[in-house]
Design a protein around this nucleic acid. Structure first.
Lengths: 207, 207
DNA sequence: GTCTATATTTGGATAGAC
DNA sequence: GTCTATCCAAATATAGAC
């Protein structure tokens, strides 16, 4: 029988190289645009020729998919760092919005890959997509915890939040022109939903 | 002296062919994605070979630029059709939001070209860009007419509106899941800004 | 104005030697 | 695992005949 070592040094090295390739890929899309990822250039950056990349990823889409998985993982991790949330619902809402907008604003290429899907023909693998879905479901739970249960209000909230992120990225990249509006936007939304809920409550009791 | 005809039939035909090419280009980007415009395919569609396109447009970017100009013109025209606006500010606000969201939702490729700029290396020509800027300035005037003069409120309004358009296009293309929220969103924004203005008014008089 | 022919570049991907 | 060599396809663009 062969002695099986506890660590597979070859596998470790393989994973390390994959990570290195992905790092270089992120750098390239940040510099040249998400759609401008080129296997030739990518290989050169990490000191290889293009065909060697195929020892690590079976296709260009597989690289995008791995990047997508990394991005969603970063989202999940950053989201976890949000807790514990402030007790005050409004403060928690502000924190949630701020988290999302700043996460988006921090990396335009990542935002495009995760939330905009402008790569022709790219669909994240089912496994990657599921993680992203679960993570967004957590946002819904967050709102539910504040008594915001109306699905339309959830849609309104996502529209408001992505709108701020989108305008920040499109019209003031690197700045804070829309980030500064987050607290005000959260107050606007919160007041609206609570008023709405009261109205509905009232409508029910008077009937 | 040569007799100069009043109409230049050759020029007319040239413009007609240009228009035909642009129509085919729109069809192609709607079907395949904005970035997937191919001169070969485009030429085939209009019954030419690729090099013949260069008699009408000096480059691929020139085609994108002409499309950009058409898109902004469509925006301006549609905007003009909005008038006269309802007297009631809230109703006018709703009409303005609805106009913008529906204009965006009507054509994802156009939205991407005009407002998202995902074509690597493409910048609209100065002339085209100026038209777009003027048109958006009109939106600002619209709000100013309602007493919404705070530039931050204008930014909040654009964020809310583009957010609705973006979510509609990203998550329910062809549907109306976010379009249905427009009136509610306008009310939310309107109440927020009027309350805010009152507060500021109050703060000034009590000082 | 349109064509053929071609230049040139670039892209992703594969075969097979080492 | 990495390389060279190559394939294949597609892209934009130009030259020059007709």
């Amino acid at each position: 029988m062969l002695d099986k070592p506890k660590r597979d040094r070859r596998a470790e090295r393989h994973e390390a190289t994959k990570a290195e390739i992905l790092d270089a890929a992120w750098a390239q899309v940040r510099a040249e645009g998400l759609a401008a990822l080129s296997l030739r250039d990518l290989a050169r950056t990490v000191g290889m020729r293009a065909p060697s990349l195929y020892s690590y990823f079976e296709s260009k889409h597989a690289i995008y998919d791995a990047m997508y998985a990394q991005g969603t993982q970063q989202f999940v991790d950053a989201q976890r760092a949000l807790y514990p949330l402030p007790d005050e619902p409004l403060d928690a809402l502000k924190a949630g919005m701020r988290f999302f907008v700043e996460f988006c604003a921090a990396d335009a290429a990542r935002y495009q890959l995760l939330f905009q899907r402008t790569i022709p023909g790219f669909e994240p693998s089912a496994a990657s997509y599921r993680i992203a879905e679960e993570s967004l479901a957590e946002v819904a739970e967050l709102l539910t915890g504040f008594g915001i249960t109306d699905p339309e209000m959830l849609d309104l909230f996502t529209a408001l939040t992505t709108g701020i992120a989108d305008q920040q990225l499109s019209n003031d990249p690197g700045g804070d022109r829309w980030i500064r509006l987050i607290d005000d936007a959260a107050e606007m939304f919160y007041e609206h939903t609570t008023r709405r809920a009261e109205r509905h409550q009232l409508g029910r009791t008077t009937r």
